[in-house]
Nucleic acid binder design. Structure first.
Lengths: 349, 349
DNA sequence: TGGCTATCTGAAAGCGCTTTCAAAAACCGC
DNA sequence: GCGGTTTTTGAAAGCGCTTTCAGATAGCCA
């Protein structure tokens, strides 16, 4: 019988397991595990042997077995309202940055601004055994927190602040109010809002509330015909602005829920010969890539998605590893002034 | 002693396992498993009892244990070059659509147009035990396919066609050539290209090659000073076009690697008083949301990302389930004509 | 009622890794 | 060279689920 090396006898199709490595290195699986997990207390020569054997065999530990044994899945879930929204994509990728550094994986899911769907997606992730969960906002299905609690994993909410749950975000009402105050300081008195869907969306709702309160604080009010709710997107922005013009005297300034909406509104304005910022000041939300390149460049509320993501990732990792964390992290939004805002024309207010 | 219901006595902190359900329903764990996995051959009354017990306890099967036992992780990985690119986001979300229908999860990772990083990310996913893998393009790290093969899971490439590997995509060279031919049919003879980074990017490379060949077929050539490579984004497009103008007589038409790049080029053109499409025709790639809303609306090559994602998802699921599949699925791109293209000014060609 | 199938069911054996525990080996000072 | 430590090490017991296999039940017909 020929004396073939082990690796040729290795039956193909079956990937090597710890026992194979142990066998080849002449140790037990316990030692293999110790070496591969970097734990101390293995003599240098054995450690070497194991390393080489693992290398030769192309050994890759079975994740499921490891998860079962350690009770750690090494993955964190995130459910966002809309995976095509720039802000959420940025958060996902920055959360992932941090998770990767701790050897965790991110599993993302889409809830489509629907609480039932959000519950379904989160449950799905929970069943998978995720070790932590990131959500957006403070409004969720009534059963969601109970399920999360039962699973015993850490959860963090993002993009808004919460009284009850750990969170990383900012005060949506206050930042939108800041935009409204800025417009009022410029002299505007008829200010409109075009927001995305507000149902089950505390961020959108809070922003409008914040604006209404800021107006009220200066004796103005948000006219119902200037308070428009549309579905997201450029088309939505166009429709929304058109709708706003249909009701009485036009506003001299508008605050939009996203930069896309603002873009749409500006297109509609141009189509109607309304000049921006001459006749109409426009403020967006998010500071998307294209905002500085619109004509005129868009004044917008920059949401620090990347920082939010990093903080949320760090928060989850810390709690998973049992380290202490602060319950609430505020990462304030910032008003970026560009050319789409200006004082109203004389006598227009 | 008080006669408390079971669920109050349940020690908190330990989530219920199959044995608890079995115990409560008065059956074995084997039967619990059979009921929960919908397999036939369990008498109605026992089935009922198990269902109720699981419900009462809020039982959720441990994913790791299940994965270990079935050798199925119920997750598919996807590595894309840039998770912030609209086309890739759409593909991810449409792949996920299909995976969810088969109860699979998608785990997405970002490779940042770097083969080493792509290898690292893919390896990371492979180690996690994914059941299938989606990649973008046909150029990868030399070791990648070997690792995938060793893991024994199905893989599918997207966005381009491949001679060697299963794929869902289209002929990038041919579709870009179509755009070039369209421009030449309009009468253009000086045609330029602004593409994203071409290194390790077969799609970008193929598009430029396709254009060059189409030009050559009609006795024209792609002048080196009209062949610009930039990093993606609106800013990149601006810079790219500026750079192109610096070298000799300007082109009368350009084809851009993405709509963002086209947007940037149009901004730069406007800034210099070059009218589109009067002095310059512009074609983009992807048909992004904003393309129809630019001024003028952008002619672009629409890539059917959603269909590609669905086909890729179906392909992977089919192979995971051992069903036969076609190796190559072509989902052709489409030239969408809008107002950013027109015949060149008389005498300009 | 008895004999023979066709259904159901539970015990038990994994899946591949980690981790405990006790034994073995190595080390140390005298 | 010896008793007492201190390291290293491997055997074995899980982790929680699926699945096989054989025994228990139920169903059916004569």
């Amino acid at each position: 019988m020929l004396d073939l090396p082990d690796d040729i006898l290795e039956p193909p199709g079956r990937s090597p397991v710890a026992r194979d490595v142990a066998h080849r290195a002449g140790v037990s699986t316990a030692t293999v595990s110790r070496v591969l997990n970097g734990s101390a207390g293995v003599r240098a020569d054995k450690r070497e042997a194991v390393m080489r054997a693992a290398q030769d065999l192309g050994f890759v530990a079975n994740g499921a077995a490891r998860a079962l044994s350690t009770r750690r899945f090494m993955a964190v879930g995130a459910v966002v309202p809309n995976i095509e929204n720039e802000a959420f994509v940025r958060v996902l990728s920055s959360v992932q940055d941090r998770l990767r550094q701790a050897d965790y994986t991110l599993i993302a899911a889409n809830a489509g601004y629907d609480l039932e769907d959000e519950l379904r997606e989160a449950t799905f992730l929970l069943e998978r055994g995720i070790d932590g969960l990131m959500l957006v906002g403070d409004i969720h299905h009534p059963d969601l927190h109970a399920r999360i609690a039962r699973s015993g994993i850490p959860m963090v909410q993002t993009f808004s602040l919460s009284r009850e749950h750990p969170c990383v975000g900012f005060d949506n009402a206050a930042s939108a109010a800041r935009a409204a105050n800025y417009l009022m300081d410029l002299g505007h008195r008829r200010i409109g809002v075009i927001s995305g869907l507000r149902k089950d969306n505390d961020r959108g709702g809070a922003r409008v509330t914040g604006i209404a309160q800021a107006l009220a604080a200066r004796g103005l009010r948000l006219a119902p015909e200037h308070d428009i709710e549309i579905s997201y997107g450029i088309g939505g922005g166009r429709d929304g602005f058109r709708q706003m013009l249909a009701g009485g005297p036009p506003p001299t300034a508008i605050i939009c829920g996203t930069d896309q909406i603002a873009f749409g509104a500006m297109i509609e304005a141009r189509a109607r010969g309304i000049s921006v910022p001459g006749d109409l000041s426009v403020i967006g939300h998010n500071d998307s890539d294209f905002a500085p390149f619109l004509d005129p460049p868009l004044t917008t509320i920059r949401i620090h998605s990347v920082e939010i993501g990093h903080a949320a990732g760090d928060h989850l990792i810390a709690r998973i590893q049992g380290r202490p964390v602060v319950r609430l992290t505020e990462i304030d939004a910032e008003l970026i002034l560009r050319a789409s805002t200006a004082p109203p024309r004389r006598g227009a207010g």
